[in-house]
Design a protein around this nucleic acid. Sequence first.
DNA 1: CAAATAAATTTACGCGCGTAAATTTAAAAT
DNA 2: ATTTTAAATTTACGCGCGTAAATTTATTTG
Lengths: 343, 343
Amino acid sequence: MSQPKIRNMEDFASVSGISRPTLSKYFNDPASVRSSTRARIETALEQFDFHPNIYAMNQNRRLTKNIGIVVPNLSDPFFAEMARNIENWVIKAGFRPVLLGSHGDPEQEIENLDNLRLIKPAGVLMAPLGRMSLASRIASFCEDVPTVLFDSNIDDIGEAFVGSNNVQSVCLIVDYLCRTGQPPAFFEMKTPANPNAFKRRNTYVQAMEELGHEPRLIQVDGEGWNLEEIGFREGTKVLSEGKLPTDTILCSNDRLAIGVLSAAYQLGFKVGIEGDCDLRVAGHDDHPFSRYTCPTLTTVSQDYEVIAEKSAKTLFELIESEKRAERRTVTMLDGKLVMRGSA
Amino acid sequence: MSQPKIRNMEDFASVSGISRPTLSKYFNDPASVRSSTRARIETALEQFDFHPNIYAMNQNRRLTKNIGIVVPNLSDPFFAEMARNIENWVIKAGFRPVLLGSHGDPEQEIENLDNLRLIKPAGVLMAPLGRMSLASRIASFCEDVPTVLFDSNIDDIGEAFVGSNNVQSVCLIVDYLCRTGQPPAFFEMKTPANPNAFKRRNTYVQAMEELGHEPRLIQVDGEGWNLEEIGFREGTKVLSEGKLPTDTILCSNDRLAIGVLSAAYQLGFKVGIEGDCDLRVAGHDDHPFSRYTCPTLTTVSQDYEVIAEKSAKTLFELIESEKRAERRTVTMLDGKLVMRGSA
DNA sequence: CAAATAAATTTACGCGCGTAAATTTAAAAT
DNA sequence: ATTTTAAATTTACGCGCGTAAATTTATTTG
């Protein structure tokens, strides 16, 4: 077992008896070499455990098997979970995921794209920050690299968009809340950092009007991504002031709702749908934690798995076709009502 | 503004009028060139916005400014938060963080290290999976790259370890619980995937014995990292069977506790410390969500910021010294009791 | 202002790999 | 067995950058 150290493909070529260009072909696509040579290579591979240097590969290939995944914020369990799902699809399709979080910062978002450029990705799956995003710079990236947006849409950017249909989902829950109790007030941030917020607000207003109710916006202060904290702090204010025009609160997203639920609990509100409850709270997203809140959070699900699968597969098709999309496709997935204890 | 496209350092050299080797020196360390040339470069930089290709840099430099950060699982808010803190320190020190999650998989953990090797990191900050980790392979990585472990210790691996003192912290909360009510039973997984679990269990047993109480372990089934789910499911079982020997449950970590709290709520248990409560629940870690549970979770804090800061700075000192640590330092930070509503 | 020193430039090669063209070798078809 | 065809090898260069040595230029010192 006197195994010489294999430092590069050259070394591996000499110990395996296969020429370096052939090895290079093999590592690019094992099916591209004759099966007998493939067998020889793989035998040698077992013995010597050589991996080509992916960064050197990236530098030279016109196109790599890398797929960039960019999300606004990895500390948000929603995006962490989404990213994990997408990573799995990427691996399953034989690509290599490169995950980058933008920390809620538009500059960081662009830097992530710049860094991705260097590894010449075959494509990118991106959930943009949304309104804050430096759209024109993202657009110029998308001209060079096939990109599919998910979660948050930016008009005309990227080859496709896959996300949830906020209009449908917000209508769904507004409708549900109105049918089963008092019409909801809408709890949100005055200046939301997270995407989709405006669309949800507008849909809420419209849905309420269509149902003949007066929309009531509760727009609270707060900056950044610590949404539970904001929901808790501002929820405490709103609830303790006691001048809520309704007993039902619809939050712009589950993370705010988690904060509001916590505030309600501490102030002694009984949240739920039974007769003796004095407050209903609903959210939006079906956040991983919303099934463990007290009471469990009624919300509208965004189908993580389907959004992940659909956006990934859209990108793979694009990559395989080796040309750009003829026209931008927009896929809006319907949310499903998740009835739990809180509303 | 007819800006020629700058494709590489060569191009930038010609437009800036500075030779490529000098530019190379500048990008490696701006202070290494004369201030007048530095000024010229920076002027040109503003005009042309050139960034050297980091991957080409990595390939050639003996040592880069990269610092690897490896955590067991990015979907766990605890590690996500920890990673974010560390990233900030890394950036502040002028390094470039490269964040990798292991998805709870020992093979992935090794693959992460293999990939890090290729970018020749100046150092690595790693929270290993712990018991599951392929220790010998991690050790061989640590021989080549200065590595500081955090959160979970593996004997004799890495130049240093920074984590919380589980013995102190578990004693602290066991003591607190015993002083203020019935002695706690210990709720944990039979085969925990997360690190520190065994140490906590043993400490619990020992602490109970020292206080003259009989330790009671509730060891539940379940695999993987979906700890809230496991806590909820098994908590429901345990609580509804109604044969708890005590009214106080100490969970091995906050994520399990979050599940248990949710189960308790749904079963109608009143959790808390007031006289009319029928259950106390405590956790360990001060997870980002534990201040929003209902009731808020009493726990022991791991000081994220301090662990992040201390481990990062330990690594920086190591890197600057340009030699390996003379002997392995182990830093155990004391946990602080976080008294909230649940116990 | 000349000498000493420090910094920049020129030249040249290397990193690990991709890839193209010409050539040789092996497999498949006749 | 011979021709056709496919695949592997040889050779050579390129990617974007680091870096060393020799040389030139600029700055500091006396």
